[in-house]
Computed example of a mutant assay.
Amino acid sequence: MGFSISNAALRLVSGAFILNTGIGKLNLPMEQAAGLQESAQRAIPQLGQLAPEKFGKYLSYSEIALGTVVLAPFVPTRLAGLALGVFSGGLVATYLKAPGMTHPGSIRPTPAGTAMAKDFWLAGIAVALIFHRKKRTQES
């Protein structure tokens, strides 16, 4: 397992962002948890079966765990990328299915959707981590 500054930068930025977001949701008020759950169940309907308080806790814990996995240098880069890809895929699906977030017939964000559209950068980072190729050393 070699060290790559580019991978380290991608993992540091995305992992720290997600970890911080998860920590910020540890004491999520019930109303906020219910609002997040409503958005999330558009992409994953089964999430509607949870109580909002449980959803909020599970969301917080999963973001903390994901952020930690992405940041941990002993976790292989492709595995961190796959975990990030699953998470960001859910965020992108939520953005695309939320009413009023995109212009009609487009993925371009409306002013209201700009904050959620940033989740595409997490998907891009995931792709970069998954498909990063190690440089082969030449024998002299």
Rank of each mutant, 00 (worst) to 15 (best):
V13S: 04
K57G: 01
A51I: 00
L84A: 05
Y95C: 00
G90D: 06
F131H: 09
E53H: 07
P76K: 12
G100R: 09
S6E: 10
S6H: 08
G15T: 02
P45Q: 11
F120L: 14
Y95E: 01
E63Q: 14
P111E: 15
K57A: 10
I107N: 06
P99I: 05
A123I: 05
L71I: 08
P109K: 06
I125D: 00
G100E: 06
V13N: 01
K54N: 14
S88K: 04
F3A: 05
A93G: 03
M101Q: 08
F131Y: 15
M1W: 10
A9R: 09
A128N: 05
G24C: 11
Y58H: 05
L71Y: 09
I64C: 09
S106W: 08
A98Y: 08
L26R: 15
K54E: 10
K118S: 07
T137Q: 08
F131L: 14
R42G: 05
S39R: 05
Q37W: 03
A65K: 02
D119L: 05
M1I: 08
P109V: 05
R78I: 14
K97M: 13
L19P: 01
G100S: 09
F120M: 12
Y58C: 02
K25V: 01
S62I: 01
T94R: 06
V127T: 14
N20A: 13
I44A: 08
L79G: 03
R136W: 10
F17T: 02
Q32V: 01
W121N: 04
A112K: 15
A33I: 01
P111C: 09
G56R: 00
L71G: 02
P52F: 04
A43F: 06
A123W: 08
G15M: 05
H103G: 02
A123G: 11
A65C: 13
S88V: 04
R78P: 09
L122H: 03
F74W: 15
P45N: 11
P45A: 11
L28E: 12
V75N: 03
I125M: 05
K25E: 03
P45K: 11
N20M: 13
H132G: 04
R136N: 10
H103V: 07
L84M: 08
L66K: 00
S14T: 12
E38L: 08
